[in-house]
């Protein structure tokens, strides 16, 4: 039996290099999902606070579905179902080409829609916290609708939504662990392989938990930095 330190080394008998690769996958998946989730979430929130009932309805259906399905199920549906559906559409238009939804893209899409549906709620309540006077003020000084949104509302919106978004980011980081179930070699899957091969399950799943804890701590530091920055610019205005 190799000692714990050999198993945790970076050498050929150690598993740290494999787990480090998994950590890289986890981080890149979370970072790649974040912008998708934020953008979709923002537009869904805009739709849900619109005066147009049909837009509100479309937004509500979206959040109802993706907040109601288990993340794991969404992931399977995108990974297997999406692959079959996309394959059939492509084959219909141009037979012969192959488009594959690999597990990274499937994870990005599935986690992105889940993130965006929660994110839209955060944005929505932030929207509601911004008084109508802000819009009216914007229009009064001759800004267009888009300009008012971009220059007046959005900066305030982000500041109000930031704590909620920070929470969602931490959830996203944890949810990436689910992609291990569709074969993406993320932190948890790499740890799982190490656990299976070495039969040191407690050690390696413990390591995986620690990795996520460290990621959460680093995120908290980053979030505090952003909050300070955004907050101070608010005071000096």
């Amino acid at each position: 039996m190799d000692s714990v330190w050999t198993l945790l080394s970076f050498g050929p008998k150690g598993w740290s290099d494999d787990i480090a690769y998994g950590v890289l996958v986890t981080i890149s998946l979370a970072l790649a999902t974040l912008p998708i989730g934020l953008v979709i979430g923002f537009f869904v929130a805009v739709a849900k606070q619109s005066s147009e009932p049909s837009l509100r309805m479309a937004g509500n259906v979206y959040t109802t579905i993706f907040r109601g399905l288990p993340e794991l199920l969404t992931l399977f549906v995108v990974f297997y179902g999406g692959q079959i559906a996309v394959g059939q559409i492509i084959r219909f238009f141009s037979p012969g080409t192959v488009v594959e939804i690999n597990s990274f893209v499937a994870g990005m899409i599935a986690l992105g829609v889940v993130f965006s549906s929660y994110c839209s709620e955060v944005f929505l309540s932030a929207f509601r916290a911004i008084p109508a006077g802000q819009y009216e003020g914007g229009y009064a000084i001759g800004l267009s609708k888009g300009q008012t949104m971009r220059l007046v509302v959005l900066p305030q919106l982000i500041r109000i939504a930031l704590p909620g978004l920070a929470n969602l980011w931490l959830n996203l980081l944890k949810d990436t662990a689910l992609v291990s179930a569709i074969g993406l070699p993320d932190t948890l899957r790499q740890a799982g392989i190490a656990a299976r091969v070495t039969k040191e399950a407690f050690l390696f799943f413990g390591v995986a938990c620690l990795v996520f804890l460290v990621l959460a701590m680093i995120s908290s530091v980053g979030i505090h930095a952003i909050e300070r920055k955004v907050g101070s610019s608010g005071v000096t205005r």
Binding site: K174, D175, L188, F202, F205, G206, F212
Partner: peptide, 18 residues
């Protein structure tokens, strides 16, 4: 701070080795 999936594995396979 850690994924529930990882916690579940830790309990199921991790404690299984004890």
């Amino acid at each position: 701070g850690t994924p529930l999936l990882a916690q579940t594995f830790l309990v199921y396979y991790g404690l299984g080795s004890f």
